[in-house]
Design a protein around this nucleic acid. Sequence first.
DNA 1: CTTCCACAGGAAAAGCCGGGGT
DNA 2: ACCCCGGCTTTTCCTGTGGAAG
Length: 413
Amino acid sequence: MERLTPGDGIFDDEDALRDHFPNRILERDEKLTEYQSAFQEVVRNKRPRNVFVYGPTGVGKTIGTKAVFRNVERSIEEYDYGDSRFCEPSLRTVHLECKDLNTSYQVAAHLLNLLRAETERERISTTGYPEGEIYRLLFDELRETATSHVLVALDEIDTVGDDDNILYKLPRCNNDDSARYVDPAVTKVGVVGITNDGTFRDTLDPRAKSTLCDREIHFPPYDATELETILRDRADVAFHDDVLSADVVPLTAALAAQRSGYARAALDLLYEAADQARTAGDRQVTEAHVEAAEESIQQGAIVEEVHGLSVHGKLVTYAMLRLSESDATPAKIDTVYAWYKQAAEQVDISPVTSRTVHNTLNDLMVSGIVDSEEVNRGRGGGRHYEYELSCRPTTLLDGLDGDSRITSVDTRI
DNA sequence: CTTCCACAGGAAAAGCCGGGGT
DNA sequence: ACCCCGGCTTTTCCTGTGGAAG
């Protein structure tokens, strides 16, 4: 076996295709301007608005928020309040990742610790306090912060689920008692809720909704042109000169836009393509590498998809697989159902009805596992669909492998 | 043109499951 | 420990469909 060497004919710095490096955001100028305008009140030293930010993963919500916060801070630093009629505000921003915090209580406790992190005040235990006590500590901490304004970003707030107490209370900690609210010494708080769950807003308690959703900012997926800009920017850093053949970036952008529109997906695809080139010892990344990478990413997605299916979904997939091996595809649902039923009975799983298998097959079509064609043989066969596999059997086996209930089915049905 | 095949897929009822209240 | 409720899946039932056979 040869030794690995750090030198690499393809990548100069592949980190540029991963994570949030470089920490900047492109093609979102208009969106960020709109977003930032929600904080006009801060710069005017008024009570800030609460903002609700939503959109799928990988479209710049998190770094966009950080960029906006930083820019608001800079705006205050750079504006000359000296002879204006506004008092100069002072701003503190915090960004809390709520991913692993499943309750309002946990969010409140971690937020409190985050606020205290920069002071000498001691952090509190994240368990053990009565619920009301946590909120009291948190609100006192907020009000007594040395700055005039605090902006709190709660990232991935959908994880707190039904327990939206914090989302109701936090935005109101300014005005829950009006004497304090007019007191200029009391810190004014603005809350930004960030989520990638499009339905989350609707599940909120109406009271929380009305306060938190003061202003709503929607981050849509990127289109192909935007992805192209992002890819070029990163590719400049990631690759040696002239490694990418001309159409690689546009093709990658187009494929990623078609599939999802997430920057992450586009960068992963480009990385995968380049990695394949490197592994093959090629000196250039070509469109063929991109096509191959797209293919392998899609296969990977299908493996995941199959892996996550219900037992019945797996059994139907298995039945399709066996039918395909026996050259019995395309098959109509009766045939598929018969094979499915046999497989199910063999492993002692009571089969579902054909109506349900019908639905299952529809799901499998959406996932790109099977494909169907409408056929109509009139009196001698009627109108129906015929199903066949739409991906490689080996891919499906990878997905089914590991489920002992399926692998123990006798292959000689 | 009418009939009829054989399934597609909608609607509603039934069943199931997890969470919360008592 | 028990029951009830709401949300989800599955079953049951049934009507709709388009073209070839008659």
